[in-house]
């Protein structure tokens, strides 16, 4: 029997609030990254989390190496999920690459989101010859992909049982592999390549919905010039820089992120969304 998108993506819904927030995890993780954020938000909103194709507990049959060879495929999945769960008009919070997946989905299906919150977004991770500073050189990304291969295909596959120790038993080794979030080396590498080779810079000026960017003080993945580019390229865009450092503030500084999200949704985006709806 064919699974529905909500089942394929292991979608989870919590909270009873009037507004619905969809939290989309970034590359290298699954929906568990929201575990310190979602409960707090659920007190006020309806919160939906899910796993992208190839991540966490997503249906292995969902991943299609051709369709998911670009961010478009992931954006199509978001649209399908929204249709299946009747989520049109919800707020979409995307971390890292999910910010751009959300942007593409919003362009493909205008009105699907009321607003878009981008945490640590980057429209292009590579430095380019036109002076754009994405933060990474090609060889660095290649090194990263090599490390990914080593740890998934090589080490994790061969030595995970040894590393966790025989005393822990095979189920622990399995758990270990699972908590790498992406349990298929092939998909992990593919998603990594799609993410770090993506360039959505030209799409951003076409966005018509209100967007709010949450930037970390010091983000090693999305450096300030990259974040600034996103902020400037999107027409209706506000930005807030968090105290938090790193690339995953929702993990490292969940409370601050929850507060920032509330502020953004209630004060900025809520008003603008109402205006947009009224206009």
């Amino acid at each position: 029997m064919k699974l529905q998108p909500r089942e394929q993506h292991c979608a989870r819904v919590s909270g009873q609030g009037g507004r619905t927030i969809v939290l989309a995890h970034g590359f290298g993780c699954d929906q568990t990254v929201w575990k310190d954020v979602a409960p707090d938000l659920a007190a006020e909103y309806t919160v939906v989390t899910f796993d992208f194709a190839g991540a966490g507990g997503a249906d292995p049959g969902l991943y299609d190496r051709r369709r998911h060879a670009s961010l478009d495929g992931y954006a199509d999945d978001v649209i399908a999920l929204f249709e299946d769960m009747d989520l049109q008009g919800a707020e979409f919070v995307g971390h890292s690459v999910s910010a751009m997946i959300g942007a593409i989905a919003a362009l493909k299906r205008p009105g699907i989101f009321s607003s878009l919150v981008m945490i640590g977004p980057s429209a292009c991770y590579l430095n380019t010859s036109d002076g754009y500073h994405g933060g990474f050189e090609m060889r660095e990304v290649e090194e990263f992909l090599d490390l990914l291969d080593r740890n998934f295909a090589g080490f994790a596959a061969t030595f995970a049982p040894i590393a966790t120790g025989p005393a822990n038993g095979p189920e622990v080794a399995e758990e270990f592999a699972r908590t790498l979030c992406l349990n298929d080396a092939e998909i992990a590498s593919a998603f990594a390549r799609v993410t770090f080779m993506s360039d959505t810079r030209k799409l951003l000026p076409a966005l018509r919905l209100p967007v709010h960017v949450l930037a970390c003080s010091e983000d090693p993945i999305a450096p300030v010039p990259a974040i600034e580019f996103v902020h400037e390229a999107i027409p209706h865009c506000s930005m807030e820089t968090l105290e938090a450092t790193g690339h995953c503030p929702h993990i490292t500084h969940p409370a601050e992120v929850v507060a920032a999200l509330r502020r953004a949704l209630d004060e900025r985006l809520g008003g603008q969304a109402a205006n947009a709806a009224g206009g």
Binding site: C29, T32, F144, L147, C248, I251
Partner: peptide, 25 residues
């Protein structure tokens, strides 16, 4: 830089969520 990228995208979330990292290259 590649290592930093891997640490940020994989190891750090794992450490935060699971409390440990086991023998990662």
């Amino acid at each position: 830089p590649g290592g930093r990228l891997y640490f940020q995208t994989h190891l750090l979330p794992m450490l935060r969520l699971n409390g440990e990292i086991a023998a990662s290259a």
